[in-house]
Simulated scan of single mutants.
Amino acid sequence: MSAVRVRQHVNPLSQKYQTPIAPPDWATLYQTTTNPLHLDIGCARGQFLLEMAQAKPDWNFLGVEIREPLVVRANEVRDELGLKNLHYLFCNINVSLSTLLGSQMLGGATIQFPDPWFKKRHQKRRVAQPELIQTLADRIQPEGFLFIQSDVLDVAEQMRAAINAHPAFQPSPDSTPWMPHNPLPVATEREIATLLEGKPVYRSWFTRLSNESK
């Protein structure tokens, strides 16, 4: 996938990103609408989902990203490969998730290496806010999954704490303290680069319970 030059950081609290997007016509996005849907939040250039869509043709994949040029290019590459189980959307997921999905349920969701927003006054810009976790709990079907990972311990701990605080999610036993290996068949570009540098990746896997009592 060729490089697209865009800003590395986008402030999700900016006014231009506060308008929720309407739900798409799902029948026009995917060839087989009955496939389970995997949502990747903050998909960047979309390389992870590009490989996942080919590795798991019996799933549909949706990547959302706040940097529009990356979404445009990712959809171009998808079209070049003729993939019918993959789509990318430009939106601020913290504003749009509930309206975007409508009644559409998810088989699972991933949040991988989100922008860390290190400064304390900026941490309200982080993606794993309680409202987002609540919407994911509402939209991930029972026995579905939520997988998170980061190379920044504070970010991983914040995401894990937000998810653990919701009664709908049960952490995998091998997520304590952190999952030693990625259970998915594809690694993100950031994950590969981090591991090649000999640095740790902090991962947790959660299952959506059929009821909300842990």
Results as ranks from 00 to 15, higher is better:
Leu83Pro: 08
Gln8Ile: 02
Ala156Leu: 00
Val64Ile: 13
Ala137Asn: 13
Leu195Gln: 12
Val72Ile: 12
Asn94Phe: 05
Leu70Asp: 06
Cys43His: 05
Gly107Ala: 08
Met1Thr: 14
Ser204Val: 00
Asn35Lys: 09
Gln149His: 05
Asn94Ala: 08
Arg45Asp: 15
Arg67Asn: 11
Ser150Gln: 02
Ala53Gly: 15
Ser204Thr: 03
Arg160Met: 04
Ala161Cys: 05
Ile192His: 07
Tyr30Ala: 05
Ser96His: 05
Glu68Thr: 07
Val10Ser: 09
Lys124Gly: 13
Phe147Met: 02
Gly82His: 15
Met52Gly: 10
Arg121Leu: 11
Leu136Gln: 14
Val201Gly: 01
Thr176Ile: 08
Arg67Asp: 02
Ile21Trp: 00
Pro130Gln: 09
Glu197Asn: 01
Ala128Val: 09
Leu83Gln: 09
Ala165Arg: 07
Arg203Asp: 01
Phe113Arg: 05
Asp154Phe: 11
His181Arg: 10
Pro142Asn: 14
Ser2Phe: 09
Leu81Glu: 02
Leu70Glu: 12
Asp174Glu: 07
Gln18Lys: 11
Asp25Asn: 07
Asp174Gln: 13
Thr99Phe: 03
Val95Leu: 03
Glu65Met: 07
Val95Phe: 07
Thr135Tyr: 15
Asp154Pro: 04
Asn35Leu: 13
Phe61Asp: 04
His9Asp: 07
Gln149Ala: 13
Gly46Tyr: 01
Arg139Leu: 06
Arg121Asp: 14
Glu157Asn: 11
Gly144Asn: 12
Pro57Phe: 03
Lys119His: 13
Val6Asp: 10
Tyr17Asn: 14
Leu83His: 12
Asp138Ser: 15
Asp151Cys: 04
Pro171Cys: 02
Leu62Pro: 08
Gln158Pro: 03
Thr135His: 12
Lys84Asp: 15
Leu49Lys: 05
Asp40Ser: 15
Asn75Cys: 07
Phe61Arg: 04
His122Asp: 15
Gly108Leu: 00
Thr32Gly: 06
Met1Val: 13
Gly108Glu: 05
Gly144Met: 03
Gln129Val: 15
Ala74Gln: 02
Thr99Pro: 01
Glu80Ser: 12
Tyr17Val: 13
Pro114Val: 00
Pro130Arg: 02
Ile148Val: 13
Phe61Leu: 13
Asp151Gly: 07
Ser98Trp: 04
Val71Tyr: 05
Thr99Tyr: 05
Pro130Gly: 10
Ala44Gly: 15
Phe113Tyr: 08
Glu65Ile: 06
Glu191Leu: 05
Gln15Ile: 14
Leu97Val: 11
Pro180Val: 04
Trp26Asn: 05
Tyr17Trp: 15
Gly42Ile: 06
Thr207Cys: 10
